[in-house]
């Protein structure tokens, strides 16, 4: 399915760019605004999702059909109040990547800004998708979004995500041998459908296994995942 994105957070872009509150000259402001505009014009966000029943086997959440265990303590904790969960995948498509590559040739700093815009845009797409699913399925409470590679869920679980969602056929999303999603500006995530209000826990860097040591994060950036 397609989805239209009309904006995303500039503050987040600045954060990814490692901005620490210095004065931003007007030409650089304009440069960033222009990159945001180009990003919105270039991206072709697509998404897909599936709802699975959870079969709790002791402490381990297992999908009912097909029987696939969700690996790790962190995902079990997140889903503890849930009998169902949503698998979702979203991508900005490959066009933005070509635009970034072209920018690398023309003007490297535009490329970096565009890259950060892409990271911010895919998060915004996920937020929007989540909202849409919520409305469509008439769900009140959702848990956070949890991706393979967060906490103690191995990144190799991406294989299951991509397979179960048939992302290649649905939205043109594939995995490399090292479990990197391609096109690069893409996300897969698990969201629990809960009966009670959920506290925000698992979202982004805070629950990444690299949290302690991630230099990207320390510099105020993210790896875009």
């Amino acid at each position: 399915m397609e989805i239209k994105l009309s904006e995303f957070s500039k503050a987040e872009v600045l954060q990814y760019l490692g901005w620490r509150g210095s004065e931003i000259p007007k030409d650089v402001q304009n440069q960033i605004d222009e990159c945001i505009k180009i990003t919105l014009e270039t991206i072709k966000p697509r998404w897909t999702y599936k709802v699975f029943d959870i079969d709790w086997k002791g402490e381990t959440p297992v999908l009912k059909e097909p029987q696939i265990a969700l690996i790790g303590n962190d995902i079990a904790t997140m889903l503890k109040d849930c009998k169902k969960c949503i698998f979702m995948a979203a991508t900005l498509g490959a066009d933005i990547e070509r635009v970034i590559r072209m920018a690398e040739i023309r003007n490297m700093s535009n490329a970096i800004i565009l890259d950060c815009c892409g990271s911010s845009a895919i998060e915004a797409v996920c937020d929007k998708v989540e909202e849409e699913i919520k409305q469509k399925l008439n769900i009140e409470y959702l848990t956070d979004r949890f991706s393979a590679g967060y906490g103690d869920m191995p990144i190799s679980f991406q294989n299951e995500m991509v397979n179960l969602l048939d992302t290649q056929r649905q939205i043109g999303l594939m995995l490399t041998d090292s479990c990197i999603l391609t096109p690069r500006k893409s996300v897969t995530a698990i969201i629990g459908i809960a009966e009670t209000k959920q506290t925000k826990r698992f979202r982004g860097c805070a629950y990444c296994s690299m949290f302690e040591n991630c230099r990207f994060r320390k510099a105020g950036k993210t790896c875009g995942k």
Binding site: L17, G18, W19, R20, G21, S22, I24, P25, V28, Q31, I32, N107, M108, S109, I112, I113
Partner: peptide, 14 residues
């Protein structure tokens, strides 16, 4: 020192 940030550094490099 944080007086300029990444886009400015790269603009200078460019």
């Amino acid at each position: 020192k944080g007086a300029v940030f990444l886009p400015q550094l790269i603009n200078s490099a460019g």
